[in-house]
């Protein structure tokens, strides 16, 4: 087979697959251009109890003491420092377990889940698990720990509260 023919066939397959992918996923593409999936590829219809919040919203919930903050980072990171009064559910060590073992968390209350910052996804994964466990109001503070510290908001150091 001549390279030119191979090239045309490859281009045809790529174009054909792209068209199929775009047509089949048109509703998702529409949502993307309306601004969804910018934080994480999470279907907010499927996970109806989850919302994404900004630093300002997290700060307000914290100030009003209206939410319980949950830190999904590792035990070591949490021990070093965390948002004041947050609880630690280290997602990496909990993800294989069926039960997250969180009996003290209120099903109806507001939970704010966070991890390092926009690079990390463990807060999203933990929020999905909490949704499946029937928690009704889960907010993902996506810019997370990095932003909180940058703004100099209250933190706890080395106090092992869990």
């Amino acid at each position: 087979m001549k390279p030119k023919k191979l090239f045309y066939q490859v281009v045809f397959i790529l174009a054909f697959s792209s068209i199929l992918g775009i047509v089949a996923n048109f509703p998702l593409i529409e949502k993307y251009f309306k601004g969804e999936y910018r934080y994480s590829f999470l279907s907010l219809e499927k996970y109806s109890s989850i919302t994404f919040i900004t630093l300002a919203e997290a700060e307000e919930l914290f100030a009003r003491r209206e939410a319980l903050f949950i830190d999904s980072r590792s035990k070591e990171d949490f021990r070093a420092s965390h948002i004041m009064e947050a609880k630690n559910i280290p997602f990496e060590t909990h993800k294989e377990r069926k039960d997250l073992n969180v009996p003290s968390l209120p099903l109806e209350g507001t939970l704010v889940v966070y991890c390092d910052g926009s690079e990390c996804q463990s807060s999203v994964e933990l929020a999905k698990r909490l949704h499946k466990m029937d928690f009704k109001d889960i907010r993902i503070f996506f810019s997370g720990w990095a932003e909180w510290v940058r703004k100099g908001l209250p933190i706890s150091l080395e106090n092992d509260k869990k």
């Binding site: 697959s17 792209s18 992918g21 998702l28 593409i29 999936y37 590829f41």
Partner: peptide, 19 residues
């Protein structure tokens, strides 16, 4: 980047099935 992850996720599975 996030946008590329999104585009790849829509197209690549179809490429795999078609090919």
């Amino acid at each position: 980047p996030s946008a590329l992850s999104f585009f790849l996720a829509l197209v690549m599975p179809w490429l795999e099935v078609v090919c």
